[in-house]
Design a binder for these strands. Structure first.
Length: 420
RNA sequence: GCCGCGGCAGCUCAGCCUGGUUAGAGCGCCGGCCUGUGGAGCCGGUGGUCCCGGGUUCAAAUCCCGGCCGCGGCCCCA
């Protein structure tokens, strides 16, 4: 057969061993953090029925979705995000558990976009969802949890937390008799900063009030813009309650009435965390309240709030700020060099591994010089030599590759190998 | 989807503007000096569909067109 070389698909990445170490380290950090708050990990299929996302995800996401037909003609999609699948799973099998339910996940997602810095077609999200509480405390916890992760991993001036509330906009538009679909459209325009367009879409009085909110520099201005529109006033109050609690909890943040977010299912508080140093793709986390999604996907009328961290972007930020620990996986690593063919080699390897060592057995027949050279190149801590002499004498030769010291360690005191 | 820059050895790149022997360098890898002792040094070797396709030409890594991929930006998002 003629050899062919197939390239990696556009927007995807290979991860080499060094990169995987850093990724595993961060993944474990996030998992442990989520679990320490009582969130339990779930996993859903990589693909779902396309309709799951088409119902409530919003136009932009749909245009970027990987949709395909399977052999039976079912329309499926690679998940572009994780909230809808978690809600689907909740409606399928979790809704009878004690509420509120706290769930977390770590998964790859797919979007057909033009790749650039911080943006890939396959990327990873780590997130949480709280299903079954409409109280501001739930919003506060989700923001506090997210903020705390960034605060522990990055310098405090490296990131910004912005909190807004879609209920203000939605509530106001509702007062003007404007339906959900148009609300979504306005939210998108606001998100894009296309404020002139807002005027074209809305009646003049509504448009004026929306623009006043979005460009507001103080809470007072917003209050003025929405006065008389009761749902919007309640939303603002809700946002201020959340903000006050965040302040008391020491969570540094700013209010931003233009945070709209591109997902149509958000109904209340919305927030984003940015790392400005990353440039274009600076948004590293985002989330908010979605009180109607569970019902809209055929489940009970249950409120929910959640967030997702852009895993790859967070890792990028950690690299920029040099915050990836070198010794994240501290372990003793040894090359076992057999100079004879003997089953004893495997026995010794096993015993050393029981001590917690990583033991790489040299299996390519290298002579001792070559083997030591390779152990050095791989950065190992020890070389363990087993030859004729060792077999006859009942010991192993353990060489510390950093100091160059070498000692004979009797087989029945093998734990002394670590002292060399 | 749009704009800009790029693609040559495993890696980083020179050569391209001004077409012309056998396409180079450094690093890496393999081996020797060195038959049971690494890192340094010296010597040698290994290395390439010059991204793909088409065009111009006596002749293309080099010029032109298209595509693919990468990087950066816009938009949006994570």
């Amino acid at each position: 057969m003629r050899p062919v070389r197939i390239a990696r698909p556009k927007g995807t990445r290979d991860f080499e061993p060094e990169e995987m170490r850093a990724r595993r380290w961060l993944e474990e950090f996030l998992r442990e953090r989520f679990q320490s708050y009582g969130y339990e990990e779930v996993l859903t299929p990589t693909f779902e029925h396309a309709r799951l996302f088409e119902e409530k995800s919003g136009e932009e996401i749909l245009e970027e979705m990987y949709v395909f037909e399977d052999k039976k003609g079912r329309r499926l999609a690679l998940r572009p995000e994780m909230t809808a699948p978690v809600v689907r799973m909740y409606n399928d099998s979790l809704k009878t558990r004690p509420h509120p339910l706290k769930l977390c996940y770590f998964v790859n997602c797919f979007r057909y976009e033009q790749p650039q810095r911080g943006r890939w077609r396959e990327f990873w999200q780590a997130g949480v969802e709280v299903i079954g509480s409409s109280e501001p405390e739930a919003d506060v916890e989700v923001i506090e949890l997210t903020h705390g992760i960034f605060d522990d991993l990055l310098p405090s001036d490296a990131f910004e937390t912005r909190v807004g509330h879609l209920g203000i906009l939605r509530g106001l538009l509702e007062e003007h008799g404007i339906g959900e679909e148009k609300q979504n459209k306005v939210a998108h325009l606001v998100d894009k900063g296309e404020l002139d367009e807002v005027r074209e879409v809305l009646p003049e009085d509504a448009a004026e009030r929306v623009l006043q909110i979005v460009t507001a520099e103080s809470v007072d201005e917003v209050e003025e813009a929405i006065s008389g529109a009761e749902p919007a006033e309640e939303a603002l109050e809700n946002l201020l309650t959340i903000s006050d609690q965040l302040k008391e909890a020491g969570v540094d943040h700013e209010l931003d009435f233009s945070v709209a977010r591109g997902l149509d299912y958000y109904t209340g508080m919305v927030f984003e965390i940015h790392v400005p140093e990353l440039g274009g793709g600076s948004q590293c986390a985002g989330g908010g309240r979605y009180d109607t999604l569970v019902r809209d996907l055929g489940g009970p009328d249950v409120p929910a709030v959640g967030m997702a961290i852009g895993f790859d972007r967070l890792l990028m930020a950690l690299k920029v700020y040099d915050r990836i620990p070198e010794d994240a996986f501290e372990e003793t690593r040894a090359l076992l060099i057999p100079l004879v063919k003997s089953g004893k080699v495997w026995e010794v390897a096993r015993e050393l591994r029981e001590l917690g060592w990583v033991v790489d057995v040299e299996v390519s027949g290298k002579n001792i010089r070559k083997a030591l050279s390779m152990a050095d190149a791989k950065g190992y801590d020890y070389a363990v030599i087993i030859g004729e002499r060792e077999l006859e004498g009942g010991y192993i030769s353990v060489k510390n590759l950093e100091t160059g010291d070498q000692e004979e360690v009797p087989l029945d005191e093998i734990e002394r190998a670590a002292e060399v």
